[in-house]
């Protein structure tokens, strides 16, 4: 049988080794692209799903707080106020929730490729982040329809995204390896996330909290971050203290994440 002989290429040390940063970037984009492509090619609604979830939630809260009870929280237009908090929350919630399965889901790949290990967490944060960015036009649309005025506070948007990415990546790097050993953590994380939804200024603003409680709330890094997102339409939401705390805590989370991840990765690789 004639075999298709291919051109034999010599072992080529000629190709210069690529820098670790480049490998990391390429891997990250490949995996993120894979996630999004799988999402969009397997479902009919595709992109809409990533918007639909926060949108439905926003409509429910909007209905409850403006049509049933008289809203005394947040700012008008309340639907824009809600969405500006819910979309970042969807990113945070999705990324942290998925990071519990970061190694389990891609176990075969982790076992067979020598990639920088933190990429398994980073790609979750990135792909959920891309979905978040793609959902931003929805807020814009609602803002136009309900007449919310765009302010210079919109310049905070990149800062908010950077802080949230840092915080989420840091927490993910702690959670992902721990779940491999303590499976209970997967459910615990879900529970904590549900609690955190109400314990973060999403359906309300920091200033709606009774005096005293708002100081405590400032130590929830999401409080500062969400206020920065809202600054685009509601600049009064931004206060210095929560933002500074959010920045410090996000960096601390990333530092802790890197530390925990480095110490545990050896054991994780044996376990999966």
């Amino acid at each position: 049988m004639p075999l298709a002989l291919s051109t034999v290429t010599l072992a080529s040390p000629s190709r210069p080794p690529r820098s670790p940063a480049r490998v990391y970037r390429q891997t990250l984009w490949l995996l993120t692209g894979r996630d999004l492509r799988v999402r969009y090619s397997t479902s009919f609604l595709g992109y809409l799903w990533s918007v639909l979830d926060p949108l439905v939630m926003a409509l429910i809260y909007w209905f409850v707080f403006t049509q049933i009870v008289d809203r005394s929280i947040g700012e008008a237009p309340y639907i824009v106020f809600l969405l500006a908090g819910l979309l970042p929350w969807t990113w945070f919630n999705g990324a942290i929730g998925d990071s519990t399965r970061a190694f389990i889901k891609d176990a075969k790949l982790v076992r067979s490729t020598r990639l920088p290990r933190s990429v398994w967490v980073a790609r979750i944060v990135l792909s959920k982040g891309v979905e978040f960015v793609l959902a931003i036009p929805v807020v814009v649309a609602f803002a136009i329809v309900f007449g919310a005025e765009l302010t210079w506070g919109v310049l905070w948007l990149p800062v908010a995204i950077a802080l949230q990415a840092t915080l989420t990546l840091g927490l993910g790097l702690v959670i992902a390896p721990l779940v491999v050993f303590f499976r209970d953590l997967e459910r615990a994380v879900k529970l904590v996330l549900r609690f955190l939804f109400y314990a973060s200024p999403i359906i309300y603003g920091l200033s709606d909290l009774p005096a005293g409680l708002d100081t405590w709330m400032a130590f929830n890094p999401l409080a500062g971050i969400i206020s920065l997102y809202r600054a685009a339409f509601f600049p009064d939401q931004v206060e210095a203290l929560p933002v500074i705390i959010a920045a410090v805590m996000s960096l601390a989370a990333l530092g802790l994440g890197i530390l925990v991840f480095r110490r545990m990765v050896r054991a994780v690789l044996k376990e999966i």
Partner: peptide, 23 residues
């Protein structure tokens, strides 16, 4: 080693080649 590990069920052969070779 576990050579089929990186392949994704829902993607086409073409997409899988690009993905795995890239990884």
């Amino acid at each position: 080693i576990e050579i089929t590990g990186g392949f994704v069920d829902d993607l086409t052969v073409r997409e899988n080649v690009h993905l795995t070779a890239g990884l």
